[in-house]
Design a protein around this nucleic acid. Structure first.
Lengths: 209, 209
DNA sequence: GCTAGACTGGACCAGAAGGTCCAAACTTTG
DNA sequence: CAAAGTTTGGACCTTCTGGTCCAGTCTAGC
């Protein structure tokens, strides 16, 4: 739904659209949805108002959704290839390092997807729910990894992968929120370490990484 | 700074001001700062525009700061008396339950302070930093408790209370973010459990709650 | 090379938002 | 009770914002 994107796109059109999304994503990341006007986007992309509505007939909402998808993809990319195969303790460590490296090197802090959801729930619950789907998909990768680890005996049979995944993901999001608030990577680092510690606590006593 | 509140307040004036803050706090909690106009506040409090600027000469920014302080106090209240004496494992369990009970019973989800910081950083970094001070103060209580626990031997001497506090607090904030996104208390519950598990992992092997 | 359709520029609009102002009503206090 | 100061109402202003419209330009395919 809300997928009534422009009639058809030429190569040039697709490029322009991509340019708009990329630039707008940075603006929104830095200043939030409410703090970014379409005029800001226009100025930042050297386009005109009509182009914005040509490529995003749904207006600002549709643009924001496109930004969310773009940022989500970007964040997933930063966690590859670990995210898809969180089957071993080593993979989790690699994942942790990749996350820290990614967010530590960014000029802006905070999770591009999490902040969007937080801001949108108040003004546009429908859009927020859709963006929240990305969060769930992200969390799903953690969940899948933990399930496989339980099946392979790396976690105790009585461990609850769903709940653990939720907890680890909450640590990531919370760490990023504090990272944004304090302008330091330290909270994310501490949160990830503690989350992995909690994960290890669900391993059989015989195992140890 | 930014403390140039109205000249002097009569009892009646103080009551009006309090009424404005309380009602505006609910509005902002439900719809966000950007989603709440001064006209909304005016309508929701049965006041006039001039009163808003009479009690908050700094305009919307000052009102938002007052809301932040109000919500912060409210959240602390919900964690009392545990928050001030997180010296024992039992206190941590009580704190956990108090948090879950508080947020589970609220009509709106999400942390009133955390979401404010997240939204303000983009538009008003100065105000955001001030509100972030509340978060730090909150986290400070956790930190102090953990320090005392290390001193009393409930945590291993090599445990890092500051880092652990940061991690637990990140779990709370992240859990609340997901709680807001999924409209379920489950993420907060899972996050708190995992955080406490990580805390227990920093206890001497002889101790066990 | 011509036509249909995509692409672009920018003027324009209606409404909302934050904020100002002034005059009236009420309280306090000497 | 009268002056000084607080409290309240609401009209008004300016700027910004998302969104519309139309007229021109470019591009692809016949």
């Amino acid at each position: 739904m809300t997928t009534a994107t422009a009639p058809r796109l030429t190569a040039k059109g697709a490029a322009t659209r991509a340019r708009i999304v990329a630039a707008a994503a940075d603006l929104v990341l830095a200043r939030g949805v409410g703090g970014t006007s379409l005029d800001d986007v226009r100025a930042g992309t050297l386009t005109s108002k009509s182009q914005l509505f040509h490529y995003f007939p749904g207006g600002k909402t549709e643009l924001v959704m496109a930004i969310a998808a773009y940022q989500f993809e970007r964040v997933l990319q930063a966690q590859r290839p670990y995210l898809e195969s969180l089957d071993t303790w080593a993979a989790w460590d690699g994942w942790r390092d990749a996350l820290l490296a990614h967010y530590g090197s960014q000029p802006h802090w905070g999770c591009p997807v999490g902040t969007l959801v937080s801001e949108l729930t108040g003004t546009d619950p429908v859009a927020a729910a859709q963006v929240a789907g990305h969060l769930d998909s992200w969390c799903g990768h953690l969940r899948d990894g933990l399930r496989r680890m339980r099946d392979s005996g790396l976690l105790r049979p009585d461990a609850d992968p769903d709940r653990l995944a939720l907890a680890v993901f909450a640590s990531v999001q919370g760490g990023l929120l504090l990272t944004q608030a304090t302008r330091s990577i330290e909270p994310l680092s501490a949160a990830l370490d503690a989350a992995l510690t909690a994960l290890h606590a669900a391993a059989p006593v015989t195992t140890r990484s």
